[in-house]
């Protein structure tokens, strides 16, 4: 029975994801019909149609998948590891740190040596941030200190990003700053997808390996260890996996917040609250949310296209507040 529920949940998420992907392919400046979109996708349409669908709209959809997978799975894994429903790459400053790494690589010419320097720097910074946070939780900190540390890391990374943009040899403008702090997947190409794909796959692989151990960790670290959970390995997998996947996607999309918070929270009840079981559905759910937000960004009739992070924050921030209030009640 639970197995059946799990499968139907995955099926629903997958169908939603594919449906939204198709919808996303149909929206754009050029008025293409569904038939033309499919023709463009399959390469049977005109050159113009296939250029628009394959090179402008498709990379955007694929990137939404990758960003969503990364944020959703990392959110679920971090929540499981830290045993805290408020953990999330965006809130904990992992995304912001990755953004700082990307900015440093981009604006100080590291990418001139190799384009891989971009995801490389982002992942390194993400790894540092995750390591610091983990060290903090090991020092016996509470939910509160963890969140506060995350806020500190986020604003520090944001400030350093602005500083870097100002000091860079080729000064970036306000718009660049907005991109790195709020995130967007508009106008991305398959070059960008290629740049983060290998790391997202590797990171997701590491994260998904942690499922059974995260389940056992619900018992607490002591009992989990006596059940054969290698805590050091588990921590390493979650930290490395989140840093790889989040770092690599932030390098091409900027920081997009709250996805890793909202998605696991919404899906948890459908997997009987098992933290390990939550990983895969969360990854799919993350992609669904990013795609939906990205469609909303294009549908909303604003003078200029909204940043993706604005929409996810509009959805996520109220969520966060409710969660904080609720967890406060539980803890008191």
């Amino acid at each position: 029975m639970p197995q059946f529920r799990f499968r139907s949940l995955m099926l629903v998420l997958l169908v939603t994801l594919l449906g939204l992907s198709l919808i996303s392919l149909c929206f754009g400046e050029a008025p293409l019909s569904l038939g033309e979109v499919i023709a463009g996708l399959l390469g049977t349409g005109t050159d113009e149609q296939s250029l628009i669908v394959r090179q402008i709209r498709l990379p955007r959809v694929v990137l939404a998948w990758l960003v969503g997978f990364s944020l959703g799975a990392s959110g679920a894994a971090l929540q499981g590891l830290l045993r805290n429903p408020l953990a999330e790459p965006g809130l904990l400053g992992i995304s912001a740190s990755a953004g700082l790494g990307a900015v440093v690589a981009l604006y100080f010419g590291l990418t001139a040596a190799s384009l891989w320097a971009l995801p490389g720097a982002a992942m390194t910074f993400a790894l540092l941030a995750t390591g610091v946070l983990y060290a903090l939780t090991q020092a016996g900190s509470t939910n509160l200190t963890l969140i506060l540390a995350g806020i500190a890391l986020t604003s520090l990374a944001g400030a350093l990003t602005s500083l870097a943009l100002n000091l860079a040899p080729n000064p970036g403008g306000v718009q660049d700053m907005v991109l790195w702090l709020l995130g967007s997947i508009a106008d991305r190409s398959f070059d960008d997808v290629r740049l983060c794909l290998p790391f997202v796959i590797a990171g997701l692989g590491l994260l998904l390996m942690t499922g059974p151990s995260l389940d056992v960790l619900a018992l607490g670290e002591g009992e989990a260890r006596t059940l054969g959970v290698d805590l050091g390995r588990l921590r390493g997998l979650v930290i490395l996996g989140s840093a790889l996947s989040v770092g690599a996607t932030v390098a091409v999309s900027g920081t997009i917040g709250f996805v890793g918070l909202v998605v696991p929270h919404l899906l948890r009840r459908f997997v009987d609250y098992r933290p390990g079981r939550l990983l895969l559905p969360s990854a799919l759910g993350g992609a669904v949310l990013i795609l939906a937000a990205d469609i909303a960004v294009r549908l909303l009739d604003t003078p200029r296209e909204l940043m993706l992070g604005v929409v996810t924050a509009l959805i996520g921030a109220p969520f966060f507040l409710v969660l904080v209030l609720r967890s406060r009640r539980d803890m008191l």
């Binding site: 045993r83 619900a218 018992l219 607490g220 002591g222 009992e223 006596t226 948890r268 009987d272 609250y273 098992r274 933290p275």
Partner: peptide, 12 residues
């Protein structure tokens, strides 16, 4: 091992 505290975090 049954630990002293009761730290089951999630409503499994």
């Amino acid at each position: 091992y049954l630990s002293q505290e009761d730290p089951v975090q999630w409503p499994i």
